[in-house]
Write a protein that binds this DNA or RNA. Structure first.
Lengths: 222, 222
DNA sequence: TAGATTGTTAATCGATTAACAATC
DNA sequence: TAGATTGTTAATCGATTAACAATC
């Protein structure tokens, strides 16, 4: 399908475009040029035009792109016109921090359930979110329509949890542990590894410092 | 200097190489071929050889690379032969989760202090780590030799905190907020943005699913 | 019409990979 | 010597960017 034209690099920039556009919309800007948007996000204007063209988003020559239309279209591309209920596996410090982070619900990723294997935690609530036993994962995924699983357990449990998520029918996994996980092709995985980020920082710090980017994408304005 | 030959892509793979090598060392493997290491990390063997060559790490033709030597050299490149004391700004749920994550100290990134502006928290401890007022940042950075600052505050405080870290002389910042920060060239920033990661997941989930990689690098074995 | 800005082609750049001579 | 594997060249691939005709 046409979707194959959208590169991973483009997808990685979409959240940054959206964030900049939402601020522009607040400023009541009706249109935005590729030059302006590029400057806000820290990329080349031609890259912006190419990215938008790959999404079949068109602007108006001599004028620019309609901000509201851009926000709408990019949101649709990112699936933000619907909710993606999240389950967090691991009700430790990280799991509780995620549960307490209201920003996720605001952005369409409400955490609906926490899972753990510690009997003392089962049946309690964290920030109003129930904690259930990992054995109840499959049933809960079906019951609550969970779309995304977040692995927030100790590293040595990561693969086991990933397997459980996969058998429960989950198609998207965010892995916070230091260990890579192996999943079938149909499942999409991203990893957030704090220790790796720190190691990359120390590499550049130790040398004269080049500039490093976040998340593999130039998200930081220079 | 010679350092300019090392690409950001190579740097991003170093932590994954190191992780695989440490497991191999545990298996008492004395040497490893580029083929084997490539398979463990999920990259092409030629990429492994090219990456190592760019670090001036040599192997032995017909034999492979010495595992202990690789571990040592890559560790040195990543600055892991020394400690990088960390300060976490924000003693909320995320800050406390980080403080309780022993993995960071084990990997050479001990959290030495938390900072907040909530008087009720100042003077308390989290997992044995003191919480001080943000006003004391510069003094504490000097006193404890802090090398890395982690921004774990609400998003709207990110730039202000970044400015404070920069004036305190910090050269490496890990930003957990949804907002990009602007810093001088000498400062290295990486960002971990959970909402962005989830948006990228939902993009792929919504479509037939391609495969996405974590951290901008193919860290997940397929 | 004159100025602005898109949409897209062609050039460039950088990273990946195949292939193979060198050599252990 | 025969087999294995590196180190590196050259080819390939994909992404970025300059440039500009199209057109609002």
């Amino acid at each position: 399908m046409s979707s194959s034209e959208i590169s991973a690099a483009t997808v990685g920039r979409l959240p940054a475009y959206l964030r900049a556009l939402i601020e522009l919309a607040g400023d009541e800007s009706a249109t935005v040029s590729s030059d302006h948007l590029a400057e806000l996000v820290g990329v080349n204007p031609a890259t912006v035009r190419r990215d938008l063209a790959s999404l079949r988003i068109t602007g108006t020559r001599g004028v620019g792109y309609d901000v509201k239309y851009l926000v709408f279209e990019i949101s649709v591309e990112l699936g933000l016109n619907q909710e993606w209920p999240v389950a967090v596996i691991g009700a430790g410090n990280l799991g509780r921090a995620l549960a307490n982070y209201a920003g996720l619900t605001e952005r369409g990723f409400p955490i609906r359930c926490l899972f753990d294997t510690d009997q003392a935690k089962i049946g309690t609530e964290v920030a109003g979110i129930p904690v259930r036993h990992l054995d109840d994962l499959a049933g809960t995924v079906a019951e609550l329509g969970i779309a995304v699983g977040v692995i927030a357990t100790p590293a040595d449990g990561a693969q086991e949890v990933a397997d459980a998520l996969v058998s429960a029918g989950i198609g998207s996994i965010l892995n916070f542990t230091a260990h890579p996980i192996i999943v079938p092709d149909r499942v999409v995985v991203r990893r957030v590894d704090i220790a790796t980020e720190l190691q990359i920082l120390s590499f550049y710090q130790q040398r004269g410092v080049g500039t490093s980017t976040g998340t593999g994408v130039p998200l930081e304005v220079r």
